[in-house]
Amino acid sequence: MNTTLRAGVVIGLCGVGTLLAKRTLNGKTVWQLDPSKCVQCGRCATSCVLTSSAVKCVHVYEICGYCDLCGGYLKPEVKDLNTAAENQLCPTSAIRRKFVEEPFFQYDIDEKLCIGCGKCVKGCGAFGNGSLQLQVRHNICVNCNQCSIAINCPADAFRRVPENNSNLLKGFTK
């Protein structure tokens, strides 16, 4: 009886030890948003425990077309292609449009202004190359045990990823 009990305790301890060792070796995990699942519903802006949200727009410059008529920067059916506030799709003017050379423009994200609503991401995905993508910024995220955006995400686009490889940005496929 005692031997069985002792063996059970040892096996239990070994199990817990293995689990803890595995977790330690795997390292810390953090929440991240998978752009291939994201439907740009806008809830990242309103569901995060932080104000403003830890989800920000990230620009993947490698796949940007540097377009004059940028679907992520400009509202549809704008009269002029310029930086006038009424032309901008971003509700907080968090995207900076900079002239490179005719007819190319560079678009940079001001993360302090970005609220993670994903309007620009939807516009860029629908009308452009999809170079604007939403990501959880880990210098801001408090890494809640249960991410409140993940609970409300209709596309189940949030998952935990290793901290040392935490970006899930998407590249070009054709």
């Binding site: 519903c41 806008g42 809830r43 802006a45 309103t46 569901s47 309007k119 995400c153």
Partner: peptide, 16 residues
């Protein structure tokens, strides 16, 4: 309910 309710920050392209 949070997953189904409308979100004011959503960019609706359905009309376009």
């Amino acid at each position: 309910h949070a997953k189904n309710e409308e979100n004011p920050t959503e960019y609706n392209l359905a009309k376009l």
